[in-house]
Simulated assay, not measured.
Amino acid sequence: MLTEEHFDLFRQFRIKAMGDKLREMVDDASFDKFTFEEKMEMLLDAESTARRDRKVAKYVKQAGFKTPSACVEDVVYLPDRTINKDRILRYSDCGWVERCEVMVIISKTGCGKSFLCQAFGNAACRKLIPTRYTRLADACDQLNRARAAGDGSYYEKMDAYKTVPLLILDDFMTTPISTQNSVDLFEIMEAREGRCATIIASQLEPNEWYLRIEGELMADSILNRIATGARYIDLEGPNMREYFAKKRGAA
């Protein structure tokens, strides 16, 4: 007969989900109808699912999402919002991430571009694709601090931006970037081209990014690696912050 000491062993062996499922089987007579092999399959499925869920949670935490709960299931499809459910679900399958493509999401402030790009990032984490989310201004600030520190951390951070399978740059070119940061961005996009997937979320159209990048040649080099062949989502519609604020108020 199984005792608490036996169930404690499951925790010690780090197969707690399997132990919990076994306890459920012992306490529930409805499991008696299953064969030994079927029960073993259930135990293994329980442990496998628990381990995968923990790994997904780890990827979501490492991604650094501003809204970790953002997911495609919660995207709101209002009649006056230019967003197609079939298209969103197709993109959430992450085939374009595996093909190392670029996605550009354009919308005015408040229309939901940040939520949408994080929802795609969350979908990637569910596929066990390492993801990194950051605002462009925050990335530039981080790189500038690391460069000033002179301790080698600059190269580590640059390598992280260059190699993460999915990089999400939010608030892209909301503010102008310096010549040095233009070089940083060029090096990142050059390294990622054809090797890793990238999401760019911005309030501005690509032809307006030129005004925020110092140096015409550098601007051309950066935009050519982002805009050429990218998938575009032009997100128009009501201000979603106001929409949810009114909805909470009504509730």
Rank of each mutant, 00 (worst) to 15 (best):
M1Y: 10
T3Q: 07
E5N: 14
H6D: 09
D8I: 09
R11M: 13
M18P: 02
G19R: 08
M25N: 08
M25G: 02
A29F: 11
A29K: 15
D32F: 08
T35H: 02
E37R: 10
E37F: 08
E38W: 00
M40R: 09
M40G: 15
E41H: 10
M42G: 04
M42C: 06
L43N: 13
L44Q: 05
L44C: 12
T49V: 09
T49A: 10
T49Q: 12
R51M: 08
R51H: 05
R52G: 06
D53A: 13
D53M: 12
D53H: 12
R54C: 08
K55W: 15
A57E: 09
A57V: 01
K58V: 03
V60M: 01
K61W: 13
Q62S: 02
P68E: 13
C71P: 05
V72I: 14
V72Y: 10
E73Y: 13
L78A: 05
P79W: 11
T82Q: 12
K85G: 06
D86I: 00
I88F: 01
L89S: 15
L89A: 02
Y91N: 01
D93F: 05
G95C: 03
E98I: 07
R99K: 09
V104Q: 02
I106A: 07
I106W: 09
I106S: 02
T109S: 14
C111S: 12
C111T: 12
K113H: 03
S114A: 01
S114P: 10
F115Q: 01
L116F: 11
L116V: 15
L116Y: 06
A119M: 02
F120L: 15
F120M: 11
G121Y: 09
N122E: 04
A123E: 00
A123Q: 02
R126W: 07
T131R: 00
Y133A: 04
R135E: 13
R135C: 13
R135I: 13
A137S: 14
A137C: 01
A137N: 07
D141I: 06
Q142D: 13
N144I: 06
A149G: 03
D151R: 03
Y154V: 08
E156R: 15
E156T: 15
K157D: 00
K157S: 04
Y161N: 00
V164Q: 09
P165D: 01
L167V: 13
L169G: 05
D170P: 12
D170V: 04
T175L: 03
P176F: 11
P176S: 12
Q180V: 15
V183M: 06
V183E: 12
E187H: 06
I188Y: 00
A191T: 00
A191G: 04
R195S: 07
C196K: 08
A197M: 01
I200Q: 02
S202A: 10
S202L: 05
Q203E: 14
Q203I: 01
L211T: 10
R212S: 08
R212G: 02
I213L: 10
E214H: 07
L217R: 11
I222Y: 10
L223I: 15
N224I: 02
A227I: 11
A227R: 05
G229P: 02
R231M: 11
R231H: 12
P238S: 12
F244C: 06
A245I: 15
K246L: 02
K246R: 06
K247C: 10
A250S: 14
A250K: 15
A251D: 14
